[in-house]
Each structure stands twice: as structure tokens, then as C-alpha cells.
């Protein structure tokens, strides 16, 4: 999620109050909307991203980074140095909270991609393939939790 849950709730409340409420003339609808706002405001400090999702992403990233590091160890001195850096970054990621662990591993992942991109040798290709496995798996994990889009209704109003 690129919007932390509490910021998402704040934004929903702000939009409903400032933009939607003034456009409603039905007393019943206004009352219901106020109830939605009340629910959201009280939900704000009690929600966080599901730990199972965070753990799955973090575990997958850590595993891919470990495999990439292993692949690089078979390469040149530069590749071996990259392998050490990647392994160190994985080891340095905090165990908890899970959101921090996921964040640290994603940062390590990005640095690993950049490091591997600068190498031109078979070990780098194998390392890149290991990272690609995580990119594919994470893309699927992110999609399976989504609900069918209401984009057409949102667009048509």
C-alpha cells in the first residue's frame, strides 16, 4: 500500500465532508454519510496492513535476495562484493515490526537490482533471474487480494 491506512481514512473523511456532504440534499442520505464518517474516524487508529501479507512479501524478498547473493558468489570479484553487500543488507533488516522488515527488504531489493544492473556477467544474469522470481510472485500476491474494479461506475457516476 502506498497510502498508509490512517492517511487513507483521513483522506476519505476529508473528501466526504468537504465534497460529498454539501452535494447531498436528502436528510436520510446526509445522516447515513455522517455515520460513515463517524465509523471511519473511529476505525482510523485501529487498522493496519495484515501481517500475513507483510510476512509473505518479506519472506519472498529475503529468499530471492539470498539466492541472488549465492549466484553472485560464483562470479568475478565485483560480483562477490555485491553478493556480500546483499547478504549484509538482508541480515541487517529488522525482524519486526513486519512493516519495517518489509520496507528494509524492499530497499535492499532495489539496491540489489541497481548493483546487479551494473554488472555484466553470467552470475549477474542468474542473480537477476532470482530477483525476477520474487517480482513475479509478488505481483501475483498483490493482485489476488483485490476486488473487482468499480472503475466503470466511478467513471460514469
Amino acid at each position: 500500500m502506498r497510502i498508509p491506512p490512517e492517511e487513507l481514512v483521513d483522506g476519505c473523511v476529508r473528501t466526504l465532508q468537504e465534497r460529498v456532504l454539501p452535494a447531498l440534499s436528502s436528510r436520510f442520505a446526509r445522516g447515513q454519510l455522517y455515520a460513515v464518517i463517524d465509523v471511519l474516524r473511529n476505525l482510523r487508529d485501529r487498522v493496519e496492513e495484515k501481517s500475513a501479507l507483510l510476512k509473505a512479501e518479506a519472506d519472498s524478498a529475503a529468499d530471492a535476495l539470498a539466492r541472488a547473493s549465492e549466484a553472485l558468489r560464483a562470479g568475478s570479484a565485483a560480483a562477490t562484493a555485491a553478493a556480500e553487500e546483499i547478504a549484509a543488507a538482508v541480515a541487517a533488516a529488522p525482524a519486526d515490526p513486519l512493516a519495517s522488515r518489509r520496507g528494509a527488504l524492499n530497499e535492499a531489493f532495489v539496491r540489489a537490482l541497481e548493483r546487479i544492473d551494473a554488472l555484466s556477467e553470467p552470475s549477474a544474469d542468474a542473480a537477476h533471474a532470482a530477483l525476477g522470481g520474487h517480482l513475479a510472485a509478488q505481483a501475483i500476491r498483490d493482485i489476488v487480494t483485490l476486488k473487482p474494479s468499480l472503475l466503470e461506475e466511478i467513471s460514469r457516476g
Binding site: 500500500m1 502506498r2 497510502i3 487513507l8 483522506g11 476519505c12 476529508r14 473528501t15 468537504e18 465534497r19 509478488q138 505481483a139 501475483i140 498483490d142 493482485i143 483485490l146 474494479s149 472503475l151 466511478i154
Partner: peptide
């Protein structure tokens, strides 16, 4: 203050899959 901007948060995974 437009909730249509918020829906992008759960549209991004489709784009990541496309990448």
C-alpha cells in the same frame, strides 16, 4: 480531496503485474 485518487493505491498492483 478526490477519492478517485485513492483508488490508484489498489490499481497499482495491476500495473506492477503488467511490468
Amino acid at each position: 480531496p478526490d477519492l478517485r485518487m485513492a483508488i490508484f493505491d489498489h490499481q497499482l498492483p495491476f500495473l506492477h503485474a503488467a511490468l
